[in-house]
Amino acid sequence: MKGRTAAILAAGAVLALLAVLPAFVMPYHVRVGQLFLLSAGLALAWHILGGFAGYWSFGHTAFVGIGAFTAGLLHVHLKLPPMLGFAAGTLLGGCVSAAFAAVIAYPVLRLRGIYFAIALLGVSQVLGELSQNVDAFQGALGLNLPDIVPDAIRPEVFFYYCFLALAAGIFAFSAWLRGSRLGYGLAAIREDEDTARMLGVPTERFKVLTFVLSAALTGTIGAVYAYSLGYFTSGSVFRVDFSLNMILHALLGGIGTLAGPVIGAALLVFVTNVLLGRLLDVHLLVTGVLVVGLVLLAPSGLLGVLRDWRARWRRNERP
């Protein structure tokens, strides 16, 4: 119980720190922070499926795209007042994503491992191309969204807080989920799906539910992301690097841990945008080296390494 209180306090402290940060740093760094919170939110949403259930999706950007296009098309067709449109778009973006996930859940969740990963990669690719080539979606032309930022706030600060709220919400949701009945069921599925099923875990239902939840959260972020861009095309929301970064951030921090995706996102965004910001030519190269080094030296992520150290330290303490 003591550990849990400490963890909640730590999370609260980090949240408070992130909440006051924009007041003290340069606009560029607020933008980096915004990117970090976006990445953290996406990684957390991905991690609900990939980390807890062990189903690695390689095409989660599909849901970012669905969320964004839902918000965009809603605006184009209904022309609601900006703030109302933003709220409705965000909400509906999550819902449409969830509905789509529910439709494809039955077939794709029959696949496991690499085949599931690639099936979703395929889904995202198909959606991306359809959104670009079917005129009704206007993906090639691009969609414009109204400016919703109140005059009193700088836009980067406004979206910083939007993404902060999303990331914090998803984090809290993950924390709750992990300790729930569903969470334990997912852990069982991750470790051994057939055994879990044999022991009476309703694997099918749990998997579908998790998939839909993860898609809904990703879609919500996608809708907000679309508003933060203001103008977007297919290419700016159906992005392979979104899919990859979600995985990478979760893995870097530590798969299966709560804070892992956040820590991974923080580290990678910091390294690529601040440390290597001036070296545009080599920054992907260095990212690659980092990834390889990570897998070779710390395969269970940073939190995993920390856990191993602590275990060793404890062993040494006791004679």
Binding site: W56, G113, I114, L244, I247, L248, L251, D281, V282, L284, L285, T287, G288, V289, L290, V291, V292, L294, V295, L296, P299
Partner: peptide, 18 residues
Amino acid sequence: SLLASLLVTFGVALVLRN
């Protein structure tokens, strides 16, 4: 681990492409 292999090769691909 499938995932280790995916990530290592992804990283190397990134390096070599650049």
